[in-house]
């Protein structure tokens, strides 16, 4: 590859990698909204919390893979507690109740993070095996970013299998369309929802761990990425896994090629695309009309 081509290819892979990070966060949000109808403003805070857990596990054990396993689980645990003891009561109040509850929770998480970990910028080192570059037909590309793409792919595959090939997935999908009926069949809907919420926050947790080595773990992390994830979900359509994947990748590519060609307007390109989609389809690219 000559230099120019390899630059364009590299930008493409950057876009894909960033898109996949967005997807990991957004899909969790999407699962929670699509399945349960809950707007979880605390999603970004959970993502940040997981990055902090990752830092602590890494500090104690020195093992990144253990952190990748444990931190999302801890995060999911807190997610389940939130659902079981706080959010469940909000359902009757609609989005306003959820908004205020989850906003409150995200503030509490932010405060807790500062109390337990302080305000400094904490480092998370990537495992040595993922350091360095790999040659892709003449293009030197960092291994870690390829790892992100791969991991997100695995998570996507698991999600698809879980939703479309298992009994749980069937129940969840059925519960979304007709909750009463599923309940009448003797299935414990609250437990199913708790599991779904857990899975959603787990995905935020995975994203938090994955992104920690390329970013700084600090109390502003939630704001840094949270809003973009929300926009992915809105643009992709609520409840659509496919929408989340496609829009994440488009956002990723727009942001990297945007920097390449229209540097000054890079962020505008992304929101411009969003506005265009929403102007044509207000419920999102793959959203179901209400």
């Amino acid at each position: 590859m000559d230099a120019t081509t390899s630059m364009y290819v590299a930008q493409g892979i950057h876009g894909l990698a960033y898109g996949m990070v967005l997807f990991l966060i957004a899909s969790g949000l999407n699962v929670i909204f699509g399945m349960m109808g809950i707007l979880n403003l605390a999603h970004g805070a959970f993502f940040m919390l997981s990055a902090y857990f990752c830092y602590s596990v890494l500090n104690l054990t020195g093992n990144f893979w253990l952190a990748l396993l444990l931190a999302p689980l801890f995060t999911a645990f807190f997610g389940i507690i939130l659902e079981r003891f706080f959010l469940r009561k909000m359902h009757a109040m609609g989005h306003m109740g959820e908004l205020i509850m989850t906003l409150g929770v995200s503030l509490v998480i932010l405060a807790a993070v500062k109390i337990f970990w302080g305000t400094e910028n904490l480092p998370v080192k990537m495992p040595p095996i993922l350091e360095g570059m790999v040659s892709l037909g003449g293009l030197e590309y960092p291994v870690y970013r390829l790892f992100i793409i791969g991991l997100a792919g695995v998570v996507l595959a698991i999600m698809t299998l879980l939703l479309y090939k298992t009994r749980l997935g069937k129940i969840v999908r059925a519960a979304v369309s007709d909750r009463e009926m599923v309940n009448a069949l003797g299935i414990n809907i609250p437990v199913v929802f708790m599991v779904v919420f857990g899975v959603g926050t787990w995905m935020a947790g995975v994203a938090g761990v994955v992104i920690a080595p390329i970013l700084t773990v600090f109390p502003g992390l939630a704001d840094q990425v949270g809003m973009d994830a929300f926009l992915v979900v809105i643009t992709g359509g609520f409840g659509s896994l496919l929408g989340a994947v496609i829009v994440s990748i488009i956002f990723g590519l727009l942001s990297s090629y945007g920097v390449q060609f229209l540097s000054q307007l890079a962020p505008v390109v992304m929101v411009g695309f969003m506005a265009l989609v929403l102007a044509i389809r207000p419920s999102g690219l793959f959203g179901v009309k209400e």
């Binding site: 990698a17 992104i211 840094q224 990297s256 390449q260």
Partner: peptide, 11 residues
């Protein structure tokens, strides 16, 4: 508070 610097770095 940019997340991804890679596109700038490639440039």
């Amino acid at each position: 508070f940019l997340t991804d610097f890679a596109p700038y770095l490639t440039k």
